[in-house]
């Protein structure tokens, strides 16, 4: 007992609710009289029920969900800044407003600028975690990365191997930070990635560096030897400090 060959498409169409009313009625009528076609129809229904078993369709892993969330946050944040227009209401409310606006210009604007920078750093970090984005030169050999960077950027940061300290060197990449083409040196901490961005320092930060948490990522910035460093990762802030200490311990100190 087999289905009528000329009815096969109609049966699928009926199952999928894709037939118009006339064809659907005709097909249903046929099923009541043709055992073969009816058996085929029942078989397809059973298949559909089986495919609806929970666990057949994959669900996005939590890590992916978190990654996409962070991506939206980072990308949304890197859009043209809005805070500027907040200054207007203060300015409009007389002397106190002017004073506040003056303070705001002094104290808020540098903050806003830096927020933009950290937003950029986090966005670059998140982007680097996407497919095939992490490294332009994938090597754990520091003697390969330095010459590779040499012709491409105007900074020559130290590229120490930190595997003994628990941060193996993965490779290097070119990125664009704060108006500079900046190298990103990529390290790993277990399953996590640390991006270390380097560009010329315009001013000195305090020796302890500056740590900012944003979208679940930690940005640790410091300056050394005329260079500005920013390490970005989702590892524990304590681990990131440890990374900075290891990096500094293995870098030749240019200030001596």
């Amino acid at each position: 007992m087999s289905a009528c060959p000329d009815k096969a498409m109609l049966i699928h169409g009926l199952l999928d609710g894709e037939l118009d009313a006339i064809n659907a009625a005709a097909c249903e009528a046929h099923l009541t009289t043709c055992e073969g076609c009816n058996a085929e129809y029942q078989r397809l229904i059973a298949l559909r029920e089986a495919l609806a078993t929970p666990g057949v369709a994959h669900r996005a892993p939590e890590r992916l969900r978190a990654g996409v969330e962070a991506l939206i946050g980072a990308e949304a944040g890197s859009e043209p800044a809005r805070p500027i227009r907040r200054a207007a209401p203060w300015a409009a409310s007389g002397v106190a407003g002017l004073l506040a606006a003056g303070l705001a210009v002094m104290l808020v604007l540098p903050q806003v600028a830096d927020n933009g920078l950290e937003q950029q750093l986090v966005a670059s970090h998140v982007r680097s975690l996407l497919a095939n984005h992490l490294t332009d030169v994938a090597t754990s050999d520091q003697h390969v990365i330095r010459p590779w960077l040499n012709g491409k950027v105007d900074v020559a940061p130290p590229v120490p191997e930190l595997a003994p300290e628990g941060f193996p060197l993965v490779g290097g990449r070119l990125d664009y930070i704060d108006g500079h083409v900046a190298p990103a040196i990529v390290y790993r901490r277990r399953a996590h990635t640390v991006n270390l961005f380097v560009w010329p320092a315009e001013r000195r930060l305090f020796d302890g560096g500056r740590m900012v948490r944003r979208e679940g990522y930690t940005v640790l910035e410091w300056t050394a030897g005329g260079l500005r460093y920013a390490a970005v990762s989702d590892i524990d802030p304590g681990d990131l400090r440890q990374f900075k200490a290891a990096f500094e311990a293995h870098s030749p100190d240019p200030s001596h």
Binding site: P83, L103, A104, L107, V112, F206, G208, G209
Partner: peptide, 17 residues
């Protein structure tokens, strides 16, 4: 030493939308 944070006006952060 504790992580260094630059002083912020109370509203400098919260005032941001």
């Amino acid at each position: 030493r504790k992580p260094f944070f630059r002083p912020r006006l109370a509203f400098s952060r919260d005032a941001r939308p």
